[in-house]
């Protein structure tokens, strides 16, 4: 199966998801890793270039990042290919492809048959990157001519100085509750959020007390979020908070009260002093992210 992996870069370096896909792609057959020159994704110019380059491929793989999914869909439309987004696994079977992918906002795990040729986007982290994998050979291609009807104008950073993602789009969120005891203790929340690349949330108690700004509030009367990972620190789990985050895919809760309701919905619960746990957890996260 002739496979083309469209790699994505941030600040010059290949994204981890692209490395993951490249490492696995060879198992589908003859593989070429390509990347479009330039560091700002432009749907028209990039999709034209990729479609032209990969028009003979049986399988086009992209990372299921916002840009990757956007690109993959337009390339599939351009080439009239089958398309499956956000897959967590992929295998060749009986001349077609079989992919596993979440549906219904993650409430269903589906196995889908995708006729070849196809465009598939692969969720970051779906395929682990074996230790010591060499960086792939990347063919650089030029983007097609920019479409004169649409031009990039400027970048507007979010209030947090462009450092952090917003709650709405975050794939990971670290939320703090009353258990943090005061706004001065948010440093450990921020450090963990930085390690995870996460947005910062808060319980209503915390925003009401003025420890954190209102826009960080997660819950019934705040924001409803559905990240892949939700870390609840010192949050007891009143229904008003739960209503805003129970749809998160994986929930980690840290609370000193073993009867706290948050543990009833947590995938991983830690009963104990969060001031002890969180700094150690931050280090552990850095370690896992760094070595794998």
């Amino acid at each position: 199966m002739k496979t083309v992996v469209v790699a994505e870069r941030t600040r010059g370096a290949l994204r981890r998801v692209s490395l993951e896909i490249a490492a696995k792609a060879s198992s589908f057959g003859d593989t070429e890793v390509i990347a479009v020159k330039g560091d700002r994704y432009s749907p028209m110019a990039w999709s034209s270039a990729v479609a032209e380059k990969a028009k003979d491929a049986d399988l086009i793989l992209v990372g299921a990042t916002p840009s990757g999914r956007d690109l993959g869909a337009r390339v599939a439309a351009k080439l009239g290919r089958a398309y499956a987004a956000d897959c967590t696994d992929l295998a060749a079977k009986d001349g077609a492809l079989e992919a596993k992918r979440p549906m219904y906002a993650g409430k269903i795990r589906a196995t889908v048959k995708v006729p070849s040729p196809a465009v598939i986007s692969i969720r970051p982290g779906a395929w682990t990157l074996p230790a010591g994998t060499a960086a792939p050979q990347v063919t650089e291609i030029d983007p097609a001519a920019d479409d004169p009807r649409i031009t990039f104008d400027r970048f507007e950073a979010t209030a947090s100085g462009g450092k952090r993602v917003s709650l709405a789009e975050a794939r990971a969120i670290v939320s703090g509750g009353r258990g943090l005891k005061g706004p001065e203790n948010w440093k450990i929340v921020e450090e963990l959020a930085d390690a995870l690349g996460a947005a910062i949330g808060a319980s209503r108690a915390v925003t009401d007390a003025g420890w954190r700004p209102n826009e960080e509030q997660v819950g019934q009367t705040g924001k409803t979020v559905t990240p892949d990972l939700y870390v609840a620190l010192g949050i007891s789990g009143a229904i008003q908070h739960l209503a805003g985050m129970t749809s998160s895919k994986v929930i980690v809760a840290v609370n000193k009260d073993p009867d706290a309701d948050i543990f009833k919905i947590a995938d991983y619960g830690v009963v104990g002093d969060l001031f002890e746990f969180v700094p150690a957890f931050t280090e552990a996260v850095k370690k896992v992210k760094g070595t794998n």
Partner: peptide
């Protein structure tokens, strides 16, 4: 009950 729970906590 919900409000009193929140109140004693706060």
């Amino acid at each position: 009950l919900i409000m009193l729970e929140e109140g004693v906590g706060a």
